[in-house]
């Protein structure tokens, strides 16, 4: 019945006295790519953590794929079809690339409960396939990721989303640590998702990137949504004005 793949109504998160997120009404159409922008501490990652079951919202609703969800854990959000690249990456330094890709959802050769035998070969092959898809350079898959560069680690985290089928991809500053070439690769991955009709929420501080990639820009300021702009109807200066507080969207007047 809903024309949206994801909708939040009045989504709110308070950490004690810190109002990190207040009354976010956000909607994402199928196949749509939306950027969330805003200064440091605006509440962008907080918003993501509520959507992905990492934290439980103080109040508000999350409607995903036509169903209202209260995710109890990240794995529930993932099982529902939300793949996330967290800003903190959520990688285990002492594990190799395939183990990180399949962390928490390992492929199993036969099931013995917690002592299930891993299917290492299948995971290695799926990892190769995912990395080929993303075009990431990694010296050796079987090394631990401890000594990899920030960019390589980020690529491992992104390849994770590519290895699994999903209905929605969320990336929290996926290119923050990347060089020019690697950034281009990640942007290609995002274009591939667009081509495949997969919806995406992209959090980024990079104005050029946002205007290159997405259909719509949502601006957060001090825990509130303050603008919802179609890309064609805005420009860089306009967005900056919303981010800094020089302007506030008409529909959000009085909010912040």
């Amino acid at each position: 019945m809903s024309e949206f793949i994801l909708e939040t109504r009045g989504l709110t998160k308070h950490y004690g006295g810190v109002h990190a997120l207040t009354g976010a009404n956000f909607a994402l159409a199928p196949g749509e790519h939306v950027a969330i922008m805003g200064d440091n501490g605006a509440g962008k990652s907080t918003f993501v953590r509520q959507l992905t079951g990492v934290e439980k919202p103080t109040s508000g609703q999350i409607i995903f794929d036509g169903v209202e969800h209260t995710f109890q854990s990240p794995i529930e959000a993932r099982e529902a079809g939300i793949e996330t690249v967290f800003q903190t990456l959520a990688l285990a330094d002492d594990l190799d690339v395939p183990s990180n890709l399949f962390l928490g959802r390992e492929k199993i050769r036969f099931n013995l409960g917690p002592f299930s035998i891993l299917d290492k070969k299948a995971m290695r092959e799926a990892t190769l396939a995912a990395l080929v898809k993303t075009g990431v350079k990694i010296p050796n898959l079987m090394n631990t990721i401890r000594n990899m560069s920030g960019g390589q680690r980020q690529c491992v985290a992104i390849a994770r989303t590519a290895a699994f089928k999903s209905k929605l991809v969320i990336m929290d500053e996926p290119t923050a640590a990347l060089g020019v070439q690697e950034t281009a690769q990640v942007e290609n991955i995002i274009r591939t998702l667009k081509g495949a009709g997969e919806p995406l929420i992209l959090i980024s501080h990079n104005m050029r990137q946002v205007f290159d990639l997405v259909d719509r820009i949502v601006v957060f300021r001090r825990g509130r949504m303050v603008a919802n702009l179609r890309k064609e109807e805005t420009d860089g200066q306009d967005v900056v004005a919303y981010i800094t507080g020089a302007k506030t969207g008409i529909e959000y007047e009085g909010a912040a």
């Binding site: 967290f86 959520a90 285990a92 002492d94 962390l103 013995l112 917690p114 002592f115 891993l118």
Partner: peptide, 19 residues
Amino acid sequence: TKYGKHCYAIGSNEAAARM
């Protein structure tokens, strides 16, 4: 086994393991 893998994951980065 999964058990072994999770031992290393938790010791390496408990927050990531939980996430």
